[in-house]
Design a protein around this nucleic acid. Structure first.
Lengths: 220, 220
DNA sequence: TTGTCATCTGTCATGGACTGACATAAATTG
DNA sequence: CAATTTATGTCAGTCCATGACAGATGACAA
């Protein structure tokens, strides 16, 4: 790796560090791109050559996390039931946060703190989750030999498990033991959804892809 | 209602109509606030006196919809099981779109088309859904006599049903029979989640709010 | 009708996010 | 070292959004 590339990488990290430091100190909105650029001693224009927007910097690490989840699912054995595979993939992802190098954990926590403090960032990270769900859906559908274009079941299953994880995140409040509480809460919501979904869903999955038996579907 | 108030209401609607017309014609991003203001013959500054942002105009109607869902749930009888109450509330909301005056339906469809075409708007409307979920959670928790602060089950249930509805929306593609396909798809995903969740969840709901029996929770 | 008051509106100035164009400085390569 | 590639800085400009102020307009009472 040449000097040029090293410098670029270095500048990129410096921008991220300066950005998060400022975000945590004075808030995301209150921090201007000019401030971040000044802290790293580059021109504001250069900032936008590294990150398409201020938001992109704030959400930079989510890209890694998104990939991790996909990999975690891909690593599950092919013959594992979809619910189990998904739930365990998410569990492993969450536990990965714990067992990582403490530097990564620090980064993760800073990241969460900044995002949680800002509705716009939070909303965008949700939107990204929708993309992740699409990828997971593809994988689940592949395992089941189902066409996700016509049969909504893989998509629905992924959405349900992801919703449980999200609730687990939401239940965790910032504090000294944030990571512990996060892990515990996600475990809990995943337990709940697995226990609740398990029997009924497995039954649905056995049927063909056609119309499902509607029960009590007439409202009012 | 005085002349002043009528004029205001009129200007507001004119801005909305002009805005959506331009959004549909040339896209949301490509449409500037100045253009919308010019189309209604008001100053750009005045635009921001009616809407806090361009986005607020684009998402204006969602406020109504959000309220409708809350009302639909509140209207369900108190002794109805939570899953049923939630599912039927959403069903009624969706069917309300069908039975509404055709003008409202037109507006709804335009609205959907603009939002679906823009990732940022789509993401923000999701984020708003999170707020709706909070309100629904409060209502469900009240019905069950549960404290939503310590017990994640009401929150989880709402998140699961809402996820099903969202998948129903996602499965529906724009076209001549968008509304029909939307209704059918949401019905379908709600059927699925009700059928899958029904037995298992009811069992969970019978237990006390304490730790749920974990099954197969050791990953790997 | 008239005069007062509240409110809506336009104009102006400003700041922050972001982009295109161009020139300069630096690294890479031969 | 020279030539090429690439990163960076500077500059100008657009768009979104907001505060301040003044003028226009509807509301209302005398």
């Amino acid at each position: 790796m040449g000097l040029r590339e090293r410098k670029k990488h270095q500048t990129r990290l410096a921008l991220i560090d300066a950005g998060f430091e400022l975000f945590l100190a004075q808030g995301y909105e209150a921090t201007t791109v000019d401030q971040i650029a000044a802290a790293v001693d580059v021109s504001p224009r250069t900032f936008f050559r590294y990150f398409g927007s201020k938001e992109e910097l704030a959400l930079d690490f989510t890209v890694e996390y998104e990939e991790l989840i996909g990999c975690a699912l891909a690593a599950r054995p092919d013959d594992e039931p979809p619910i189990t595979a998904l739930a365990r993939a998410f569990r492993e992802f969450i536990h990965g946060m714990e067992t990582n190098a403490s530097e990564d954990t620090e980064r993760f926590l800073r990241h969460r703190r900044v995002i949680d403090a800002n509705p716009v960032l939070l909303c965008t990270s949700f939107a990204r989750m929708a993309d992740v769900e699409k990828k997971l859906t593809t994988e689940i559908a592949r395992r089941q030999g189902i066409d996700p274009g016509t049969d909504p079941r893989p998509r629905l299953l992924v959405a349900l498990i992801a919703a449980a994880v999200r609730v687990g995140f939401e239940c965790s409040v910032d504090g000294d033991h944030y990571l512990d509480s996060l892990v515990a809460n996600v475990e809990r919501t995943l337990d709940l959804v697995e226990a609740a979904l398990g029997p009924g869903w497995d039954q649905l999955s056995l049927g063909s892809s056609g119309q499902v038996a509607t029960k009590a579907s007439s409202p009012g």
